[in-house]
Nucleic acid binder design. Structure first.
Lengths: 225, 225
DNA sequence: TGTACATCAGTGAACGCGCGTTCACTGATGTAC
DNA sequence: TGTACATCAGTGAACGCGCGTTCACTGATGTAC
C-alpha cells in the first residue's frame, strides 16, 4: 500500500509537498523508466514490457525515453547492468571478506544468491533470462565480472585452507558453486508461477549441496578420518 | 542445405514425387506448426515467435492454427510437453537401466542433459525459459514428472550401493543433480550468444562436479579410506 | 462401382490494437553578462 | 538583481506495421448406401 504510493511518487516525480509534477521537465526520467520497466518485468517477464507501456506508467510521452536510451534493448541492457551491480554488492556483503569465519561466510554467499533471485526477480530475469548476448556492452561485462570475482575470491580463500596437494582449481570450483546456486535458484527459488515445488526450501537444498560438494573436495576430511 | 529443403518439404507438406501441396487440406498441419515454431524459438527465444509468423512459414492462412491450438500459449505448452517427452527419452536412453555399470550410466545421464540443451535449444527454451506455469496442463506435468523420475531412479540405484547408514535421501540427491546439470547447461552450455564462456567444456565441468559431489556423499570412500 | 451427403480443415478478408520510431515543436532551466 | 539567450528534456501527432482473433465461406475427404 504505502510502497505502491511511493512507487507512483517516484514514477511521476511528484513532490510530497506540492503534490504535483515538477513541470515540463521530469527531472529524473531515466531512473523512473528503469523502475517502471522493473515492475513490468517482475510481472510479465523480460519479454513482457514495452517502451510504450513504460512511458504510460511514468506518465510521459512515448517519445520521451529516446532522450535517455537508444532503444528498448539499451534499456534492458542497462537494467541487467544495474542488476549485476546490486548482485555484486549483495554477494560482497554476504562474503564480508570471509569474516568472521570463512566457511560460514561462504555459505552465506550461496544464501545471498537465492535471496537475490527471490527478492529481485526482475533484475534476476534481466540478468539471466533476457537472452542478452554476453558482449552486449562493456559496462554489462564489467558488472558481471565484478560479481563473479567475489564468488571466486570466496573460493580462493577456502581453497587456501586445504593442504597443498589437494587444492582444486579455483576457476573450476567457482563455476561449480555458481552453477549449483544458479540451478537451484532458477528451478526452485524463483518468485513466480514457473517455480517447481520441492519438499524443502531452496535454502536448505543449497546448503546441503554446498556441504556435500565441499566434503567431496576434502573439506570434511577432519571429521571422518 | 539438404536439411533445409527437407524442412520446407515438411512445412509445406509437399510430396517429393508431385512437388506440390497436397491441396486444400494440409494433412499434417499441427505437426508443421510445431516445427515452424521450434525454428523460430531456436532463433529468437520463446518470446520470439508469433502465431502469424508461424502460419507464414508453413504457408497457410492466419486462421488455420485455430483448428489445432486454442491460442499461442497452447502451442507453446504443447511444445514444452513434447520437449519433456523427448528429454525423458534421451535421459532414459543414457541411463540404460544402469547397465552395464551404474556409475558410468549415471554420468551419462548428466552428459545427456547437456547434449539435449545444446542440440535442442528450442525445446529446452520452451521447457525452461518460456515462464509457463508448472500447472499449465496435465500433459505437461506428466511429461515433466516422467523425465524427473528417470533422474530419480538413477539416484536410487546408486544410493543402494552405499552402506545403509550413509544413504542420502533420494529426493535430495535427485534435486542436487538436476540443479547442477541445469545450472551448467543454462549458464555455459546453451547454443546461443547468451552462453558464458569458460576455459573448459560444459561436459568436463559437469563430470568433475558430479564426481566431487559423489565423493562428498561417500562414493569415493574406498579410494581414500 | 457410383452417387449423395456430412464432416471439418483450411480460406481470406476484416477488425481493432499496441507497438517502435520520427519529427518539428515547446517551454523550463541555468548561465553569461 | 535583472535580462537575454542557449540548451536540451519532454511533447504530441503521425506513420506504417504486425499482431491475435473473428467470421461466413469453401472445397477436399471419407463414408453410407
Amino acid at each position: 500500500m504505502g510502497a505502491s504510493v511511493d512507487v507512483i511518487t517516484v514514477y511521476m516525480n511528484k513532490s510530497k509537498r506540492t503534490g504535483g509534477r515538477r513541470g515540463y521537465h521530469h527531472g529524473n526520467l531515466s531512473e523512473a523508466l528503469v523502475q517502471a520497466a522493473l515492475d513490468l518485468i517482475a510481472k510479465f517477464g523480460p519479454a513482457g514490457f514495452s517502451f510504450a507501456e513504460v512511458t504510460r506508467a511514468v506518465g510521459v510521452s512515448p517519445a520521451a525515453p529516446y532522450r535517455h536510451f537508444r532503444d528498448r534493448d539499451a534499456l534492458m541492457a542497462d537494467i541487467a547492468r544495474r542488476g549485476f551491480d546490486k548482485f555484486a554488492d549483495a554477494l560482497s556483503e554476504a562474503w564480508n571478506s570471509g569474516q568472521p569465519e570463512a566457511l560460514a561466510a561462504f555459505k552465506s554467499v550461496g544464501q545471498a544468491y537465492l535471496t537475490f533471485a527471490r527478492n529481485e526477480p526482475a533484475y534476476f530475469a534481466a540478468m539471466f533470462e533476457a537472452r542478452l548476448p554476453t558482449d552486449t556492452s562493456r559496462e554489462l561485462t564489467q558488472a558481471t565480472d565484478r560479481a563473479f570475482a567475489i564468488l571466486r575470491q570466496a573460493c580462493e580463500t577456502l581453497i587456501a585452507d586445504l593442504p597443498e596437494g589437494k587444492r582444486p582449481p579455483a576457476m573450476m570450483m567457482s563455476l561449480h558453486v555458481w552453477a549449483m546456486a544458479h540451478g537451484i535458484a532458477s528451478l526452485f527459488g524463483r518468485g513466480d508461477s514457473a517455480r517447481r515445488n520441492i519438499p524443502m526450501t531452496p535454502e536448505q537444498l543449497l546448503e546441503a549441496d554446498m556441504l556435500i560438494y565441499l566434503d567431496g573436495l576434502g573439506f570434511g576430511d577432519n571429521k571422518d578420518g
